[in-house]
Amino acid sequence: MCSLCGVLGGRGHWTDTSSNPDAFRAAAPTTIAGEQQARTNLVNKVLKHYGLSLSDWAPGSFVLRSHTGQTALVNNLTEVWAAAETMSKKECDPLDAKLLDGLERQTMQAS
């Protein structure tokens, strides 16, 4: 358990390569911080659509922020989307055509 926030540690999220060494031991080595930073950068491209942003807080923890100053502490990607829907009052739907169009525009701008 984290003595600062009182969060009970779990097994680690299924998306974390560092929490699933059996699956990813053959992968090119990366640090937990490096992986988390890469994930945060990519998530922010999606959260931009909802007026939200994510930043690293501690290993395995993130802070979700709205443009109006709301914040929420989340521990993994699953919690990010539930909190993002609550904060933005929108459905964060990866099948939404408007979201996908926006992501494609970002891809084209970056390439």
């Binding site: 299924w14 993994n76 990866p94």
Partner: peptide
């Protein structure tokens, strides 16, 4: 991972 967690959440 981002896509799948988002899909499963919604």
């Amino acid at each position: 991972g981002i896509w799948m967690t988002m899909l499963l959440n919604r």
